[in-house]
Design a protein around this nucleic acid. Structure first.
Lengths: 104, 104
DNA sequence: CTAGTACATGATTGTATAATCATATAGTAT
DNA sequence: ATACTATATGATTATACAATCATGTACTAG
């Protein structure tokens, strides 16, 4: 059985990939069906489907069926907070390296 | 050249692994040298060293040399906020599944 | 029942990751 | 210079991931 650490790693892993991050950004303002998602992020339907499935297994996305379409949405608002914090970290870090370069 | 999305994925990836999460938890209350870290998390020195190096490249850890020892520390307080948010998400999700199971 | 649309999945391929063992490097002490 | 301690790195192996193409399944409309 998985322990808490592994579940946490799974959630983080579900966010730790460029294609999946693009999906998260696209889902920022609400649920979308697969047919809207894959053209928006410029990936194949098949690849997009796999990433969506993976993120919902990790507990990051919710899935809702409506007729033929399947709508995915960000399951927890904390996901967006995580992304925002990571953005802060990256920007600080890039800025830090920039000033170092300038100083050199 | 890497773009912002890739940098964000790198930071998240640096946190998205059980061994590295153990390291983060151990570093919660301050910097530690490698010789303290690897016995604490129960991993080989060599493996621990690689993970530490990886996390510092991603901008997650800072590195300080003092004589023979090298001290690593969590570089941004936001890292701990990210971990805490992920913990909230996981606990809500596990709780959600539990109540579903009970209901079934 | 047929055809079409939306999504998922099997099989494959190339690449990345994690762990291990052995060895190398850098600093310290004698 | 020698021996020791702390950390890093090369080589290897096994496993996991991401992407792609082709195909399968589920629903809808006519």
């Amino acid at each position: 059985m998985k322990d808490l650490i592994e579940f946490r790693a799974d959630v983080l892993k579900a966010l730790a990939q460029p294609t999946r991050l693009k999906i998260i950004f696209f889902l920022r303002d609400g649920e979308r069906c697969v047919c809207e998602i894959f053209p928006a992020i410029g990936e194949e339907q098949s690849n997009t489907s796999r990433h969506l499935n993976m993120m919902q297994s990790a507990g990051v996305l919710s899935r809702r069926k409506d007729g033929l379409k399947i709508y995915y949405a960000i399951k927890h608002p904390e996901i967006l907070e995580v992304i925002d914090l990571v953005t802060v970290i990256v920007k600080q870090d890039i800025y830090g390296r920039h000033t170092l370069l300038k100083a050199a």
